[in-house]
Write a protein that binds this DNA or RNA. Structure first.
Lengths: 235, 235
DNA sequence: CGTCTTGTTGACTATGGTCAAGGCTCGTGG
DNA sequence: CCACGAGCCTTGACCATAGTCAACAAGACG
């Protein structure tokens, strides 16, 4: 599984996949389409055609105010679902926009994938709750640690963490709009964190020197949504 | 439908109900159990036995830090589902605690209710996103207006809004922990809002003098998750 | 090369937090 | 019937975290 595409790795880590599902995912991945940076995949209030699977690149759910204020709700990473809804005639409740060039494909649909998608949806909700806690009751520094640990955890499921570091194509402006802070303040906090020897952000890459210590410092536990621990696939 | 129980009114407003579903809901409501104030219905990290329906009273999803900080994630109102999950062996990702004495019953399970529950879950997600926006990018005053408008909208679905006002059993401390503010600041903002003639909070009851004007002031639109508008049942 | 985007830094400001005291209401028990 | 205490609300004085504004630097890219 080590060499498998990140999106497949993530899905396979959520629940056992049968042969049909593997083939369905392979077939879907082969139909991937490129989308350029800064394009909207879904528009707030517009109908959703069908669920899609993010294959490569980063996207984000975002709400934009009439006066220009912006709030990122969550980041979408390889293996995440976009527009997966179970009600009829669904409307997007937030815009989904690409942060990098991206590849997406229609989400494959087999019976065995129901559980995988349910797990995925449950995780998504858990991370939304984490985001609420960050914004509501954490200091600027804690918000940064918490977000980086979440990204670390989620990317490791897709096999995209290497040596405690990962690529993160987010500007300080975007981090600010995700964490309810200004880009200036993000900048200062990142420098403090670097000077404290806890992490480093350079050239689109994040290094967490000791993720467990960082998690301990802010009292963060890994997210779990089911009793059968959905682990990242072993290497 | 006007005289129907609030929980039934809410469910019926989400999607058409067939006769079986009506009967199943009636039968479930008859099995309601009382739970006292300040009791936990679900515990963070603990297994969830099955979905339940909140019949009467208020509850809340909450996360509590080791150092005592507290963040309310959402409020649960009559007709809301508690612990509705589609993955196997689900674990609660947040504590659910009662804010008043409450009645709950097992969530009835018929085929026609699948759509209702999907709508309910979609709405719940939409309100979580609204909460993120509040905490991330709104001023103290805007957060208060936004929350009250959300409660107004949700309670009206269950028929619990009378003359632009509704009962709200929340202390200023709880409002603070929901809105990422302190109780002291909530107090000051509520007084400013009252002096501005926009709303009044007295003795567990909220009066919004002009909900539409308030919504306009903060640029809020009613939440919609499907193209077939799920309206509150007409009186 | 210019231009655009992103990151960095400093000086100053403001929104909301903290701490502390006192008041009101209501339920309980003497 | 009244005294007491708990919980909640209110207010004031002071403080701190993060925001604003502005200028400049460093790359990236045509």
């Amino acid at each position: 599984m080590t060499g498998a595409p990140p999106a497949l790795r993530r899905l396979a880590s959520l629940a056992p996949l049968d042969t049909w599902s593997f083939e369905a995912i392979d077939a879907a991945l082969a139909k991937s389409q490129k989308i350029r940076r800064r394009r909207d995949i879904l528009g707030e209030g517009k109908p959703i055609a069908g669920a899609q699977l993010l294959v490569r690149g980063w996207a984000a759910r975002v709400k934009i105010f009439a006066d220009g204020r912006r709030q990122f709700l969550s980041f979408l990473l390889p293996g995440d679902l976009v527009g997966y809804c179970r009600q009829p005639a669904p409307l997007a409740v937030s815009t989904v926009t690409t942060l990098t060039e991206v590849e997406i494909c229609p989400a494959p649909d087999t019976a065995a994938l129901d559980t995988v998608y349910a797990m995925s949806a449950a995780l998504e909700e858990a991370y939304l709750l984490e985001q609420i806690v960050r914004l509501g009751r954490m200091s600027a520094m804690e918000r940064i640690y918490s977000l980086f640990l979440e990204l670390h955890e989620r990317l490791s499921r897709a096999g995209l963490v290497t040596q405690t570091g990962f690529d993160m194509p987010l500007t300080q402006e975007i981090l600010g709009d995700a964490l309810g802070l200004t880009a200036v303040h993000i900048n200062r906090m990142l420098q403090d964190a670097r000077r404290a020897g806890l992490l480093e952000v350079t050239g689109g890459r994040v290094q967490l020197y000791d993720p467990l210590a960082l998690a301990g410092q802010i009292g963060r536990e890994p997210v779990r949504v089911a009793d059968v621990l959905p682990t990242a696939s072993p290497d």
